[in-house]
């Protein structure tokens, strides 16, 4: 009996290590968005590109598309940028939300790096970002044809994530109309 008490610490510890080992394989940055299956919060943003129409939350309706949150000051966005340009070449509609950025900086960024966006709006104050629950840039939302958020990616979209998760989802959404 006395021996058993001395065995308790190691037994308990074994369980803990098992839990940690299981937890280690998971990605803490995969936060579920509370917006999933809910309509995009409404916003009406001025243009990034001079002479452009800007970006309204209702703009994308009618067609599944991506809403990409970016900023000229964000390093990861520059990493993600070539992927976005490729997607544009494949005909994927992408809207851009330039988060906490000067419109002139955002415009210059699109001229320098290439412009993957169908529509682009400037969210200088970060207000729309708060409604969207943006924690950092880049983040990307998959929005369906009825304007509902269906999926959220935190951090740059990798080609693998595009091919493995987002593309099949977009195809399904397009098939549903």
């Amino acid at each position: 009996m006395k021996r058993l008490i001395f065995l308790a610490p190691i037994a308990f510890f074994g369980l803990l290590i098992a839990a940690f080992a299981a937890g280690l394989g998971r990605d803490p940055t995969k936060l579920p968005s509370t917006l999933i299956d809910k309509p995009l919060p409404s916003f009406d943003l001025p243009a990034v590109r001079p002479g452009d129409a800007g970006l309204k939350s209702s703009d994308g309706a009618g067609q599944p598309h991506l809403l990409n949150v970016f900023a000229s000051w964000c390093v990861s966005c520059r990493v993600e940028h070539p992927v976005l340009l490729q997607l544009k070449a494949q005909g994927v509609p992408i809207d851009g939300l330039d988060w906490k950025d000067e419109p002139t900086d955002g415009a210059k960024y699109l001229v320098d790096q290439g412009d993957p966006y169908r529509l682009a709006g400037n969210d200088r104050t970060g207000r729309a970002g708060i409604d969207l629950g943006v924690a950092g840039v880049p983040e990307t939302f998959v929005v369906d044809s009825r304007g509902r958020v269906r999926y959220k990616v935190i951090g740059p979209i990798s080609p693998e994530e595009w091919a493995g998760a987002i593309k099949p989802l977009m195809e399904r959404l397009r098939a549903q109309g």
């Binding site: 021996r3 001395f6 610490p9 190691i10 510890f13 290590i17 940690f20 280690l24 803490p28 940055t29």
Partner: peptide, 26 residues
Amino acid sequence: ALDARRGVYILGIIAVMTGTSLALFA
């Protein structure tokens, strides 16, 4: 430093060090 490989290594250190000492304790 969000790096899973480092996490695995440190978890290994903890598992071996604490595990061995608790076994020794038992």
